[in-house]
């Protein structure tokens, strides 16, 4: 391969990686929010994305509309589901040992996976003709509409989230709880209510991620495992409390993964996790932590 060819190859992988990373950012945002505010260790995050993607698929095929539209219909459902999960499962284990939280959320993950397996069967489900399914050729590069779109939506939603957290009463309350739980309580913040809404909003973010995913790919019962660990790595890299930091970290992961596939797609995740190792060793609070 010539030098120019190599350059094109690397640049193309970087472009792919940036888009992938921005998508990971929206996937991880729900986890980051929930973990940051509530300090709950959620190992079922990927499985929640999976279940939500099935909702999107159901509506899309039933009404024959694009996944992006059905996503809008799914969001309220997820909000309510978030309230229910928080009330029923998460609240009882708040503040418990991390191991217990892991056990409960892993249990939730198992339940979701196998409900999906029993109800939707193991076949991957996808919407065959999403609106954004073409590619744009710019010089020697290819840009995928669906990935461009997911990146754009992701940036928009993260921007809104950032504004929400810094401008609204509820958002400020959430941040106060993130920073210092007990003083937030002393300041008269209804922590219980903040938790409830945090989880519900986290689920809405999950819904957005799943809608974007269905525009690009399909859902199957074990889809979640692919997203869970990566989301955690993004959160580790970013540290708590910064949405911008999360986006940058997720992009780094996306590029690492994309470059890893130049070596061999079979081992690309090893590259991502090795980065994770070094981050934890040398920058245990992440790059963008505010506390």
């Amino acid at each position: 391969m010539s030098v120019g060819g190599l350059l094109v190859a690397v640049l193309q992988q970087v472009i792919d990686g940036v888009f992938l990373g921005l998508f990971y950012a929206i996937v991880a945002s729900g986890l980051a929010l929930i973990f940051g505010v509530m300090d709950i260790i959620n190992f079922a995050h990927g499985d929640l994305v999976m279940i939500s993607a099935y909702f999107v698929w159901l509506i899309s095929t039933y009404l024959n509309i694009d996944p992006l539209l059905s996503m809008l219909l799914v969001l309220p459902v997820l909000f309510v589901l978030g309230l229910a999960i928080q009330k029923g499962l998460i609240n009882p284990v708040l503040g418990k040992e991390p191991l217990i939280q892991i056990a409960v959320t892993v249990g939730l993950g198992f339940v979701l996976q196998n409900i999906a397996l029993g109800y939707f069967k193991a076949e991957p489900r996808g919407y065959p003709n999403p609106v954004f399914s073409e590619g744009l050729s710019i010089g020697p590069f290819v840009i995928y509409e669906s990935k461009l779109l997911s990146a754009a939506v992701s940036v928009l939603v993260l921007f809104l989230l950032d504004q929400f957290l810094s401008r609204t009463r509820l958002g400020l309350a959430m941040r106060a709880v993130t920073d210092d739980r007990s003083s937030a309580m002393l300041m008269g913040i209804n922590v219980e209510r903040v938790y409830l809404l945090t989880f519900a909003i986290g689920m809405v973010l999950v819904g957005v991620a799943s809608g974007l995913w269905m525009e690009m790919g399909q859902v199957w019962p074990y889809l979640g495992t692919s997203f869970s660990l990566v989301s955690w790595v993004a959160v580790a890299l970013a540290g708590l409390g910064s949405i911008r930091g999360l986006a940058v970290s997720a992009v780094i992961i996306g590029i690492a993964e994309s470059m890893g596939s130049l070596i061999s797609p079979s081992v690309k995740m090893a590259v991502v996790y090795l980065i994770f190792f070094f981050i934890l060793w040398f920058k245990p609070r992440g790059f963008f932590a505010k506390r």
Partner: peptide, 19 residues
């Protein structure tokens, strides 16, 4: 998948009720 489903339910129940 029912076996794994019940397994998950058991985890949740033990985690919440009998930590």
């Amino acid at each position: 998948g029912l076996d794994l489903l019940l397994y998950g339910v058991a985890l949740i129940v033990v985690g919440i009720l009998k930590p």
